[in-house]
Amino acid sequence: MDTDIAFAYTKGMPDDAVRDRLTASESGVLALADGDDAYAFPVFHHYEGGSLYFRLGETSESEKSAYLDATETATYVVTETAATPDAESWTGWSIVARGPITAIPDGDPAYEAVEINERYAPIRVFDEPTDEMDVTLYELAIEELTGRQN
């Protein structure tokens, strides 16, 4: 191995710092799986009571929907880094949350539009007609939570 490669050592984050960062941050990457196939995408989140909540726009034929249905354990990653002139002194943190992800039923009070618009940034739409899109709330019940920082 090349001995000139820069490394930055990390350490575990205290539980309260992990919770604070999840509460303060707005977005990350949600990773889903169907057997040996993975699917990951950026998404906004809301953290509350030990769970992560996502508001997703889906169409009936969407690849995202198929992966949500097939996933037994989802993984969500939130990260932030700050570059410095010296690569070894970069600072940053990352959080990895894992657990089952399930749709919240339509009649649930969590669907209150005012609450949704306060908790989440607008849904990003890419060429899909919004009148053909279903908005679904999902909960990732966190079973494993790891935070690292340097």
Results as ranks from 00 to 15, higher is better:
A87K: 11
D106S: 13
D69H: 15
W90N: 11
T91Q: 11
A87I: 09
A66I: 04
A97P: 00
A87Y: 09
V96A: 03
E72L: 13
V78R: 06
I104F: 06
A83L: 11
G99Q: 03
D86F: 02
S89M: 08
W93K: 02
P85K: 07
S89I: 06
D86T: 06
A83N: 10
D69N: 14
T71N: 01
P105H: 01
D108I: 00
D108R: 02
T81V: 13
A97G: 00
W93T: 03
T91L: 09
S65K: 11
I104G: 03
A74R: 01
D86P: 00
T81Y: 12
A74L: 03
T102V: 12
W90E: 04
G107W: 04
A74D: 04
G99T: 02
V78H: 08
T81G: 07
I95A: 02
A82S: 14
E88N: 12
A87V: 12
A66F: 07
A82L: 13
A70H: 06
I95N: 01
V78N: 01
R98D: 01
A103N: 08
V77Q: 12
L68E: 05
D108W: 01
I104N: 03
P100C: 03
A103F: 05
G99I: 00
T91D: 11
T81I: 12
G92S: 06
T75A: 14
T91H: 10
Y76R: 04
T91M: 07
V77P: 07
I95D: 00
G92R: 02
G99K: 00
G107S: 10
L68A: 05
I95H: 02
T73P: 08
D86M: 03
T81A: 11
S65E: 15
Y67V: 05
E80M: 09
T79F: 13
I104A: 03
D108T: 04
P105V: 00
T84V: 07
D86Q: 12
Y67H: 15
P100S: 05
I101D: 00
A97W: 00
D86V: 09
T71L: 03
S65R: 14
A103S: 15
T81W: 11
V78Y: 06
D106Q: 10
T81S: 12
T79Q: 15
D106A: 14
T73D: 08
E80W: 15
V96Y: 01
A82Q: 15
A97S: 04
Y67M: 13
A66V: 07
G92E: 05
A103C: 01
G99S: 01
D86N: 07
G92A: 04
A83E: 10
S94V: 11
T79W: 14
D69A: 14
I101Y: 04
V77C: 10
E80F: 08
D86L: 07
T84E: 13
G99P: 00
A74V: 04
S94M: 13
A70C: 07
P105C: 02
A82H: 10
D69C: 15
S94L: 08
D106I: 12
A82Y: 09
T75L: 12
R98S: 09
I95G: 04
S89G: 04
W90Y: 09
T84I: 00
T75E: 11
G92I: 03
D69T: 15
A97D: 01
A83F: 14
D86G: 02
S89V: 09
V96C: 01
V77F: 05
D106W: 06
E80K: 13
A83D: 14
A103L: 06
A87C: 05
G99H: 02
V96I: 13
S89D: 14
T102P: 08
